[in-house]
Amino acid sequence: MQNIEFTLNGSQIEVSIDPRESLLHMLRNRLGVFGPKEGCGKGECGACTVLVEHNAVNACIFPAGKVDGLEVVTIEGLQQGEHLHPIQQAFIDTGAVQCGFCTPGMILSAKDLLDHHHKPSRQEIRRAISGNICRCTGYSKIIDAIEYASKDVSKS
């Protein structure tokens, strides 16, 4: 076991890890952060997506040891007090959530996109969430939500 320190959703964390462990395993099983989901477990479905240094990555194949000294944001870190992040709010307002399993990953992939590109086209949105699989919605509402959120995010 080995101790690492990193920033999780704005708080400094120290945790003991197995050097072979994934970031997803550490978040869910050691820290009780259940927003990132385990779907395929091999980087193909995007349900485990989190932000590391503001970039969307697959936590299931991201070595936990790699985040030592870095900043990690999960879906739990987006809400400011009682205010949902504009992307979260847009998902609600446009009906983009069905079972919800893919939603945290979708929202964080959208955040990566909107943080780097304030007015994406629908094609750019489709591409940005191409690493996130949803089996309920058919994607259209999700794309609507991100497009809708982009207006709020660009205003702020």
Binding site: G43, N58, A128, S130
Partner: peptide, 9 residues
């Protein structure tokens, strides 16, 4: 290559 997440890593 891969997906947006994979390309970041």
């Amino acid at each position: 290559m891969g997906s947006p997440q994979i390309r970041r890593m």
